[in-house]
Nucleic acid binder design. Structure first.
Lengths: 233, 233
DNA sequence: CCATGAATCAAACGATTGATTGAATCATAC
DNA sequence: GTATGATTCAATCAATCGTTTGATTCATGG
């Protein structure tokens, strides 16, 4: 009467639970989302979560694994294609950044299949205190981060690796906020006239590349070397 | 026997509770931090929180108010000084960015008086799902955001305001991750050789200004217009 | 020395949490 | 039609949550 033998593709109930949990986690966070809220929204019995997944923590992991594995698979596929086309030459930084962050934004733009919901969840989970969630995310990301960092190191051989590391970190932060969008913090409530996701990608990409290619922090005082206005392309 | 009459400056117990709560919130989040954990760490009775603050939610607000009011006061003071020196002329964007984000990083660099702990908490709270926390933060930030946005609008008259709004948003995200630093996500575990906070400020500032002054996303394909390498100053 | 109110304390409150039980129901194969 | 195993169900478990209580201790002023 315990764990189901996985023969069938999916009996639907576990998927409804995953979808309900995903949406509720975005809305209330992990701790504040109760099993009863999840099963109620999924039209399932309270015992269904433990039957299908084993525990609440295992359910959380499954919510992430379902989407994150696919996201990083797409990212690495794009990187593979770029490297194949380059035939051994270093890639352009803009291509690398677009492969990593653009893929994430594409998933975030997909409101039909829950991709948008998940990316909002992912963005706020990067800073999740919960230990096991963080460790799980780190493992799931390990390969992709390694590959993309290596590509960036090759693309920018004159830039100290530590600097690239930090800027990659900063870019992750900017992307998180970009996806969280208006609902991250009501700081800009009523100020965003246009939250169209199709305009978000070029906006974020310009910002990220501007940051990545910024003058290195050196002897010069930052901000003293330019007119300070963005240039029209 | 209810709320204390505020005659004395501070009987010490409420401060110990605030410090303990601040540290525990960073470590475990709001929900996962129990009253018993707080009062135990603060060497106080379990009833002390409700006696001094009224409720757990009120305690959370007080933890933020204590530091955030001071942070935004410093930010606005710097902006006031810059505007006084400029005598009506528009400010340089780099000065504005430094006044807003630099002040935050200064507080984050202060490990002596809990500033570092608080800024880590603040960074991860920007994406907090909890409704009342978000609304409280928004109110506490309203004036500063308004003032700094206005200054940026004046400093960059040729840039669409919506673009400035988004880039300010992106900058907030990058700063959050910068402060969360290594402990945000173990994605880069073991890769940061140098987490010295005094080098973080110039690093972040270069990145932010690079992003703020990046070419606007227009007709041109992003990333097709440059060599893609950061320039030495 | 005692009166007064702030502060602390141990103990308990009802409510809700994630998890578990054993029986009931369902689908499928023979 | 009946056996078999997967799934669902109502009911309940112990544990823990934030909060409250009433008594006790402490500090201070007259």
């Amino acid at each position: 009467m315990r764990a189901p033998t996985e023969r069938q593709p999916a009996p639907e109930t576990s998927d409804r639970i995953l979808d309900a949990a995903e949406a509720l986690f975005v809305e209330h966070g992990f701790e504040a989302t109760t099993m009863r809220m999840i099963t109620s929204r999924a039209d399932a019995n309270i015992a269904a979560v433990n039957y299908h997944f084993g525990s609440k923590d295992a359910l959380i992991q499954e919510v992430f694994k379902r989407r994150l594995t696919e996201l990083n698979r797409q990212r690495l596929a794009k990187l593979d294609r770029l490297e194949a086309e380059a035939k051994g030459a270093p890639l352009k930084p803009s291509r690398i950044v677009e492969a990593f962050f653009g893929t994430a934004l594409e998933m975030a733009a997909d409101t039909e299949h829950g991709g948008h919901t998940f990316m909002r969840l992912l963005g706020r989970t990067y800073t999740e205190p919960n230990g096991f969630v963080r460790q799980f995310l780190a493992e799931e990301y390990a390969e992709a981060v390694e590959r993309f960092l290596t590509a960036l190191y090759r693309a920018l051989p004159d830039v100290p690796r530590e600097e690239i590391l930090w800027r990659f970190h900063f870019m992750m932060g900017a992307m998180s906020y970009a996806i969280a969008g208006t609902d991250a913090l009501q700081l800009f409530a009523g100020k965003f006239d246009d939250a169209a996701p199709e305009r978000l990608l070029p906006r974020l990409m310009s910002f990220l590349l501007g940051g990545l290619r910024a003058p290195l922090p050196g002897q010069g005082v930052p901000g003293e070397n330019g007119k300070g206005a963005p240039t029209r392309p």
